[in-house]
């Protein structure tokens, strides 16, 4: 896997999205940000991304619904795109199997500092 070029952050907390944006841009990534679920889903379906950081608790649509939509077979532009759930909600047992099948990672934001996030993304690129 080569280095990611374009990363989309779907995150409604502006402080957190700013933090991630700052850290990722400093590491040389091209970053786009969506502050709402509908906006994020539209951007994901129409853009060209290597990685999407998706918050579960975004307004308008549940992040799991967005994940299902982005991973549906009819969506072709995201076939090679990785999706990491970034959330502060501990994994819901009922949705666990679904999330594990569809997402490439699940991170608790309070436990992942921006630097750690960059490190994890680096590991994904080299795996």
């Amino acid at each position: 896997m080569s280095k990611f070029q374009h990363i989309l952050i779907i995150e409604d907390d502006t402080f957190i999205s700013e933090l991630y944006q700052r850290a990722l841009r400093k590491s040389g990534y091209n970053v786009s940000v969506a502050l709402g679920g509908v906006e994020g889903q539209t951007m994901a379906l129409t853009g060209d991304y290597d990685l999407i950081l998706l918050d579960i608790m975004v307004p308008e649509i549940n992040g799991i619904e967005i994940l299902k939509k982005l991973r549906s077979p009819s969506v072709t532009n995201l076939a090679n795109c990785k999706i990491i759930i970034t959330t502060n909600l501990d994994q819901d047992e009922s949705a666990r199997a679904e999330v594990e099948a569809l997402a490439d990672g699940y991170l608790i934001k309070a436990d992942v500092t921006p630097k750690k996030l960059v490190e994890i993304i680096g590991q994904m690129e080299s795996s």
């Binding site: 907390d13 402080f15 957190i16 933090l19 700052r22 608790m57 502060n88 909600l89 501990d90 608790i108 934001k109 309070a110 500092t113 921006p114 630097k115």
Partner: peptide
Amino acid sequence: IHELRGPITVMRGFIEV
């Protein structure tokens, strides 16, 4: 806990900056 973790995320992030 979700609500508590929001500010913790921000604090830890900016402390790191």
